[in-house]
Write a protein that binds this DNA or RNA. Structure first.
Lengths: 161, 161
DNA sequence: TATTATATGATAATGAGTATTATATAAAAA
DNA sequence: TTTTTATATAATACTCATTATCATATAATA
């Protein structure tokens, strides 16, 4: 587990260097935070964590670095139905369940074989002409267990997609 | 085809009335625009179309109505990697291919049977505890044919997810 | 037609994200 | 190690999508 995290960190760091970007302490710390986090933090969340080690860090720096990581595909942006973008340091194949009430984001496991069968078929069917896919998104919007129970006890809901 | 569109309009209108919302001319026009559009317009796009018939319409009114339609699940919000939200009046099962360069959004066909096999399995696997799903999202981010050709001729790209 | 609750439009406010720029510092060369 | 240079950071101001407020208008209902 610890080894996994470190190799992930090393992967990103060497990519950063290989691509000619310099490795500042702030940047390293940001990479650590997103690559180790399981909570899909927003830029402000990352900013708040950073301030412990770097009280003078600028939010701008956080945005710049997260954008950089996203542009080199080492972090995935998650657009929820709420206001801000969230970042996922786990770029392996998976989807997200997003609670429309509390905003919590839960990973949805997808196994590679299922994916190959389904998504590749979608891509083949839909993109006969050249179309360059470099990312995907799979989201389930709804209410998490906690929020569902809360809502159910207060009012009767009857929505259905 | 014309019949399809009209019945869709009627569905939304009767839902609006049944839920106790009043039907203003502006609201009706907004419903018409989004339900008939195939281009996944943003709020401002809808606003611009509206101004032909209602020059005094407020952008605020557009936002309010699109939010209302979204809340009753008659319009789907699409979060792209760009700035603004886009709206889809087609709430049938499908995904979106989003061009990261020009922002164009193309429908990705998904047939119901495939969906049942794949998505339902995902839901069962991941949400053993109660979790209320009322919407989903499936996006392919990349470059559309046009933008891909442009990019390819200018610079060599070697990204791969 | 009168009543009432909701919708609209005008305006201001919010807040996520971006642009700018002077200073600082990582990386590379000497 | 020191110098050089290009990139990164931090502070600040700015943009712009979306939301809030509230007075006025109007749809729905009696």
């Amino acid at each position: 587990m610890k080894h996994q995290v470190n190799s992930r960190l090393n992967d990103i760091v060497s990519k950063i260097k290989k691509m000619g970007y310099s490795l500042t302490p702030q940047r390293l710390e940001i990479i650590k935070i997103v690559s180790e986090s399981k909570s899909h933090p927003s830029a402000v969340d990352v900013y708040d964590k950073l301030r412990k080690a770097y009280p003078m860090i600028s939010l701008n720096t956080v945005y710049k670095n997260l954008s950089l990581l996203s542009s080199i595909h080492e972090v995935k942006e998650i657009r929820t139905l709420q206001d801000s973008v969230h970042y996922d340091g786990d770029i392996s194949l998976h989807g997200h369940a997003i609670c429309e009430k509390c905003g919590r984001i839960i990973d949805v496991k997808i196994d590679e074989s299922d994916f190959k069968g389904f998504f590749d078929a979608k891509i083949k069917e839909n993109f006969k002409e050249n179309y360059y896919i470099n990312n995907y998104g799979l989201e389930f919007y709804g209410l998490c267990g906690l929020c569902y129970n809360e809502t159910a006890s207060n009012e009767s809901i009857s929505v259905q997609s």
